[in-house]
Design a protein around this nucleic acid. Structure first.
Lengths: 149, 149
DNA sequence: TATTGTTATACTCTATAACTATA
DNA sequence: TATAGTTATAGAGTATAACAATA
């Protein structure tokens, strides 16, 4: 177990990890609450975003991606389709499979949702000093690597 | 990668906000999945942590804190009490109220849970350069202010 | 026979409304 | 009469098991 022996900063790497964990979770919780369209559940919104990011998928792939059982995804996709946010098409070669894609309306909803959350965060960032913003710019890349690893 | 205060950085504050939002949400999701005790629901774990952080509370205060309706908190507290993680005591002066406190077992569970998540994050931080760690140290304080505001 | 997707059913969690006890 | 907490009941959402269609 290695600890950094740096006297000027928060004691150890473990202490820093703990502080970061708390802060990230809290900020994420607040961001989650900024959701625009309250008619969609979190699961539906997450599935919609997943299809948008990774392209058209079968319900099975989508269920695996969202760590949900297939029957649950059937219901989620049905709700999204009823709301006109996704369209379902038969698989070109395998008649058993179905491909789910985001509709233009779905893309518009996702765009609005992201814009709203971004605006909330950007508004709060206006209270920061320029030096703080610089720190955040540098940290964004580092946090990204952490989340990826 | 290090952004300087020039044209190579994310063009606007809104772009930075968008990048931060995505990264924070992703990191939070990964942290959430490191949960140790899967017998507790997320709501129960959040309530337990809240009592631990803010000290003994009435169910009503706890419900307001967790943005949940009082009847829901009644059930959550009942489950925590059945698991021996909290204890309930009558309010000293007001017979209608009840005070919920974390038991030693509850504190031990929280300690384990935090240790596990911290360890996960600390492990990933070991792959970072010292300069990146310094950025995170500075960013932790800034992110904290963002989450508070 | 194996696989993809859906339907049937039960369980968990939360909310609204009604009730009890205390101030 | 107002307030804190609990109980009763209903509404979402997800999971397991059974079923239909296709490979």
């Amino acid at each position: 177990m290695t600890y950094a022996n740096d006297m000027t900063s928060p004691a150890t790497d473990t202490a820093l990890a703990s502080e970061l964990r708390t802060t990230v979770m809290r900020l994420a919780r607040r961001l989650r609450n900024q959701r625009a369209d309250t008619t969609l559940t979190l699961g539906q919104l997450a599935a919609l975003g997943s299809i948008d990011r990774h392209g058209p998928m079968t319900p099975g792939e989508l269920a695996a991606h969202e760590r949900v059982q297939p029957p649950s995804m059937t219901r989620i996709v049905a709700a999204l389709e009823a709301a006109g946010l996704v369209v379902r098409a038969g698989h070109p070669t395998d008649g058993r499979q179905v491909l789910v894609a985001v509709s233009p309306e779905g893309k518009a909803l996702l765009r609005d949702d992201r814009r709203r959350r971004d605006a909330w965060l950007a508004q709060r960032m206006r209270d920061l000093e320029p030096a703080d913003l610089l720190v955040l710019r540098e940290a964004a890349a580092v946090l990204d690597r952490l989340a990826d690893s």
